[in-house]
């Protein structure tokens, strides 16, 4: 039984990942550095990081606020609201991209109006940020909600009776209690933001050197038979993913303790 499980994991996870490492460095380190120092590669990485960071900030603020609303407050339609927050997990990235184009695209009335005021959403950075926020929206909320439910309100109420303001109670009592779940959610959001391909591919227009992210770079280089560049960038992204995994692994036991 153990052998079956290990064999499955080996063939599906370990071997493929190891092979990317091998393929990347089969001609040594210098071609990899050369591939990654092309202007388009550097630009793609910069675009990716900018998008991911904006998405993390937006979704962290939203995520903490919504988690507190869902757990600590009552309002009509709460179940529906909570279900809608999870909705992005069930949507195909391509559908996400299409949905954003249909609202903010240059041919729609809203998109045209924004365009006249100098704001271009689709085929530009704002659209790519929106797509990334969309796909990673539930991640912070889903991590914090169970923790908030579990810690209850005893300590917050104690803080209030001692005269703490709502803000003090939040920053001194609630925030420390959820910090690991929050960190976990942020790391997941960051990983998803750095790794989104489908939704960003649809809204970006895939303009090389302009709206090309690291993930789009991998695909474009691969399709243009520039495998060294594709593997080099894929290796960078995979390394980030492995780092994220280790970070999650470090955060998890702290969360359970």
């Amino acid at each position: 039984m153990r052998i079956v499980a290990f064999g499955y994991l080996g063939l599906l996870l370990v071997l493929p990942l190891g092979l990317v490492g091998l393929r990347t460095f089969e001609h040594g380190v210098s071609p990899v550095l050369h591939a990654l120092s092309q202007p388009n590669a550097v630009h793609a990485l910069q675009v990716t990081v900018v998008i991911a960071v904006i998405a993390v900030i937006g979704n962290t603020v939203f995520g903490v606020g919504v988690a507190v609303l869902i757990v600590r407050h009552t309002f009509p339609g709460k179940r529906l609201f909570s279900a809608l927050v999870d909705l992005p997990l069930a949507v195909s990235p391509v559908v996400t991209g299409l949905a954003l184009i249909l609202v903010y695209g240059p041919t729609t009335s809203l998109g045209a109006w924004l365009g006249r005021h100098g704001v271009h959403v689709i085929f530009a950075l704002p659209g790519m940020v929106l797509a990334t926020i969309f796909v990673s929206l539930p991640l912070v909320v889903r991590e914090i909600v169970p923790v908030l439910e579990e810690i209850g309100t005893d300590q917050e109420q104690a803080a209030w009776t001692l005269g703490a303001s709502a803000r003090q109670a939040f920053s001194r009592v609630t925030l420390p209690a959820i910090r690991w779940a929050l960190a976990y959610g942020v790391v997941l959001t960051l990983a998803r933001g750095l790794g989104e391909y489908g939704a960003v591919a649809v809204v970006s227009g895939r303009l090389v050197g302009k709206t090309q992210t690291a993930n789009l770079f991998v695909e474009e280089r691969f399709q243009n038979f520039d495998q060294p560049s594709a593997y080099a960038m894929a290796f960078v992204l995979a390394s980030i993913a492995v780092t994220v995994l280790l970070a999650i692994n470090l955060l998890r036991p702290a969360d359970e303790a």
Binding site: L13, L17, V20, P93, L188, A191, L194, G195, E196, Y197, G198, A214, N215, L216, V218, E219, A234, L237, A238, A241, V242, V244, L245, I248
Partner: peptide, 9 residues
């Protein structure tokens, strides 16, 4: 790993 790894990678 599949959650952390970008899908295109």
């Amino acid at each position: 790993l599949p959650f952390a790894l970008p899908t295109i990678v």
